[in-house]
Design a protein around this nucleic acid. Structure first.
Length: 815
RNA sequence: GCCGUGGUGGCGGAAUUGGUAGACGCGCUGGAUUUAGGAUCCAGUCUCCUCCGGAGGUGCAGGUUCGAUUCCUGUCCGCGGCACCA
């Protein structure tokens, strides 16, 4: 009995070989077609790699290796998204500087990733915390600033007193901080914002140009949330001002029986009547105390207060009461709505609660029971101007919308408008461990951007990183760094102490890989033209919206400025599903179901881990880990090894002279076909199962023709590269197989002389039989009828129909 | 609530221009080998029945069809995202 596959020797041996020979270096500019295949780079956490990381990395690695063998010039890089809160929190707790902790974490991640044998071009490794990298992150910020896309604003932010910092919405879960679970309150603060809303339409439209999963595109569309409608002006005689509302249903203007303002609306103060002042103020206070979440939580029951004042409905002169309620958000539209209770569910609920009139203007529903919101089924009624000169009665709502907008525009009472759910991007963080924002502030609140030549603006080394407690970044503690004196004028400036969010570095890293050592530019135009766009981008679905939207936004800005040549950065996208614990739950330390890839590599080797992660099921789906399952793959690897390699380390069961027989040729070429097609479709699990089938076939042969085994080795190599390289060397080759031609199949060998047909009677399977693939329809029917099991079922019955599906089945319909 | 996505043996999963449901792997059962265990190898393994033959079966209920995991209608459940967006 031969030994087990000695992965402890073989895997490090080939990893070293690939390193020393720079086997996977991507060459800029080549006659070969290019293929840029990218992984979402990891945040190197202190916990190290978990088995979820290698899932996507293995998929891209298999494809990268496959594409090299298909003759492509492949760019497949890896790097580190290394800024972020955890290292800063760690520094605050332990006093260890984030740069030190980050370097350690990166070293661990790199060792772990390298132990899996991925074919990255390590010469292009990047690190977002490297000043040579973030110099260019800052440079892009200056471009955004020059274009007027970066601005400062007082905005209410999620202030977490315990962390002494402001959190992004995505870092707040259930009103508590994601890290630590501390309470979070809203507090207005001066912040940097990026005007992503200026690109809303293009971010939406260009989704049509990329090959992404529909679900991700849909999520981005929903996030952008474009809706068409009209802004309509309502006059308020008491204060002689008008309030503009946004509505998607201008057709229902005649049914607007009241108006609602957000409690924070600036006109609330002036239009509230003295009698209502008290009630309004107390409602405003209540609403102000609630976080957004509380407001939506308590939304089941509508609340609100009458301001005492009225507005004039512009279409019919009707006097309608103005209320305030927190179901109207200041942050969307104009912070004011016209309420049409008959045709809007929220308005309906509010009107019922406060006994406000409900007026039907679209017939077809039953407004005594519920709001009728259909815009295709239904007919406009009660909708004409008092003088009768304009009417939409009798129209479908969808037509009435268009007509009403035209009329509003002609009358100067409103205008067609588009609203987005998307908000501008809150871009500053009150943190130390991030890219410094390269601007100076003057005494009089002026902002002066740094010159390109002043970049990078590096982080000062702080002896101790601690929150200022005021909400400012710990950088504010670096007094000498903050104070800048102009040597010529002697003027004193204050540096910006906010830093950029973690998203910043990941918004353009795919460009830095193209030209990682360039210190004159972020990347060269020629290299960008050669390599972009990213042909395939693989990562977790948790980045479906934010990272991908932010990166697309930056890319479009760079496109407008002429720095990149493609409208979209990522042509194709695949989201890998998460790997669950053996118990089917999400892996987490608290559940104790975490699998450490180091343990798996030690016990089974990298080839087994790689193949198991691919064999578990379709890449996109969530799948539970199974220790028994990985042993099955380990057996497969060992069966290959033991059958073909003797205990003396020499090949066996092979023949140089024997030609493959018909069956072996069919199996080998069928496998080439199946594996190739599966790789094109990213169906790694079925490709591996086909390799198993071929290996099972080999093991039924005493002697396997060498040429057949060589093909098997090449087909196996993207999946289990260490094992394949070793076999390739044993087969007598003195160079890596990484650039061997991918095997081609010949249809000739796939033709079967005899085929097995199924025979059904009334659609039920009754028997099967073998017949020449060339047999005529008549022969097939005759033979089928002659089968004992068939004649039994058709005897004495009338055959109504005889169906022959070529190469598949025969079906008799009898009665 | 809305949007997206999925539901197939004991388990992971395979098969959709509609054509033999359960490939491959795990687990399980039996056998070989072994002092024994492990490892390895061979065979079997959707369920049920009156078992050389039948019946049922892809979340559930219907429909279209000679034939449905695949198409259509309704419905239930899991997962992900959004959540008063006017």
């Amino acid at each position: 009995m031969a030994d087990k596959y000695p992965h402890h020797q073989i895997e490090p041996k080939w990893q070293q070989y690939w390193d020393e020979n720079k086997t996977f270096r991507a060459v800029d500019f080549s006659e070969k077609p290019k293929y840029y295949i990218l992984d979402m780079f990891p945040y190197p956490s202190g916990a190290g790699l978990h088995v979820g990381h290698p899932e996507g990395y293995t998929a891209t690695d298999i494809l990268a290796r496959y594409m090299r063998m298909r003759g492509y010039n492949v760019l497949h890089p890896m790097g580190w998204d290394a800024f972020g809160l955890p290292a800063e929190q760690y520094a605050i707790e332990t006093g260890v500087h984030p740069s030190k902790k980050t370097a350690e974490n990166i070293a661990t991640f790199k060792r772990q990733i390298k132990s899996l044998g991925f074919s990255y071009d390590w010469d292009r490794e990047i690190n977002t915390t490297d000043e040579k990298y973030y110099k260019w992150t800052q440079w892009i910020f200056l471009k955004l600033f020059e274009k007027g896309l970066a601005y400062e604003a007082e905005v209410p932010v999620n202030w977490c007193p315990a962390l002494g910092t402001v959190l992004a919405n995505e870092e707040v879960i259930d009103g508590k901080s994601e890290r630590g679970g501390h309470p979070v309150v809203r507090k207005p603060m001066r912040q940097w914002m990026l005007k992503i809303t200026a690109y809303a339409d293009r971010l939406l439209e260009d989704l049509d140009e990329v090959e992404w999963p529909d679900s991700i595109k849909e999520m981005q569309r929903n996030w952008i949330g474009r809706s068409e409608g009209a802004n309509v002006h309502f006059h308020i005689p008491a204060i002689d001002k008008s309030i503009t509302v946004f509505t998607t249903r201008p057709d229902t203007l005649w049914g607007a029986t009241y108006m609602v303002l957000a409690p924070e609306h600036p006109l609330v103060e002036s239009l509230t009547t003295p009698e209502q002042k008290e009630a309004v103020r107390s409602y405003q206070n209540q609403a102000g105390l609630k976080s957004d979440l509380d407001r939506t939580d308590l939304a089941k029951e509508k609340t609100g207060v009458f301001t005492g004042n009225h507005a004039i409905n512009p279409v019919n002169g009707g006097k309608i009461p103005i209320w305030i309620s927190d179901y109207v958000l200041m942050s969307y539209g104009t912070g004011a709505i016209m309420a049409v209770p008959a045709h809007d569910e929220r308005d309906y609920a509010f009107a019922k609660k406060f006994d406000l009139p409900i007026l039907e203007v679209v017939s077809g529903g039953n407004i005594s029971r519920e709001a009728f919101t259909e815009i295709e089924d239904g007919v406009m009624v009660n909708s004409a101007t008092p003088d009768g000169r304009f009417s939409i009665n009798g129209l479908k709502p969808s037509q009435a919308i268009v007509k009403t907008i035209q009329w509003l525009e002609n009358e100067g009472k409103g205008k067609g408008a588009v609203q987005y759910r998307l908000r501008d991007w809150l871009f500053s963080r009150q943190r130390y461990w991030g890219e410094p924002i390269p601007v100076l502030h003057t005494d009089d609140d002026g902002v002066i951007p740094l010159n390109d030549s002043d970049l990078p603006l590096t982080l000062p080394v702080l002896e101790k990183i601690k929150p200022t407690g005021t909400g400012e970044s710990p950088l504010a503690n670096a007094k000498e760094w903050v104070r800048v004196v102009d040597p010529e004028s002697g003027k004193v400036y204050r540096r910006e102490t906010n830093t950029m969010p973690q998203w910043a570095g990941s918004c353009w890293y795919y460009l830095r890989y193209l030209d990682p050592d360039n210190d004159k530019k972020g990347w060269s135009a020629e290299k960008e033209k050669y390599w972009m766009p990213v042909d395939l981008y693989v990562g977790g679905a948790e980045h479906a919206v934010l990272h991908l939207l932010y990166a697309r936004f930056w890319h479009k800005v760079l496109y407008d400025l002429g720095y990149v040549s493609t409208k979209e950065p990522f042509q194709r996208l695949i989201n890998q599903g998460i790997i669950l614990g053996e118990d089917g739950d999400k892996m987490s330390k608290s559940r104790g179901n975490v699998i450490n890839p180091d343990d798996v590599v030690r016990e089974y080797g990298a080839d087994t881990l790689r193949m198991y992660e691919m064999f578990m099921g379709p890449l996109e789906r969530a799948k539970p880990w199974s220790t028994k399952g990985i042993e099955g793959i380990f057996r497969f690897v060992n069966r290959i090894w033991r059958y073909f390699v003797s205990e003396h380390g020499e090949l066996q069961h092979l023949s140089d002279v024997m030609a493959p027989n018909e069956e072996t040729l069919r199996q080998v070429h069928g496998t080439i076909k199946k594996v190739t097609e599966d790789l094109e479709n990213k169906s790694f699990n079925t490709a591996i199962s086909q390799l198993m089938i071929l290996n099972n076939h080999f093991r039924t042969l005493d002697t396997v023709p060498r040429e057949s085994f060589e093909i098997f080795t090449l087909l196996l190599s993207p999946f289990a590269p260490h094992l394949a390289e070793e076999l390739w060397q044993l087969l007598g080759h003195d160079q890596t197989l990484a650039y061997e031609d991918w095997p081609k199949y010949d249809e000739v060998y796939l033709i079967e002389n005899t085929i097995r047909l199924a025979v059904q009677v009334n659609g039920k399977l009754r028997d099967t039989f073998d017949i020449s693939s060339e047999a005529s329809k008549a022969d097939i029917l005759a033979k089928a009828k002659s089968l004992e099991k068939i004649s039994r079922h058709i005897k004495g019955k009338a055959i109504l129909k005889e169906i022959v599906v070529p190469k598949k089945l025969v079906n008799f319909v009898v009665k």
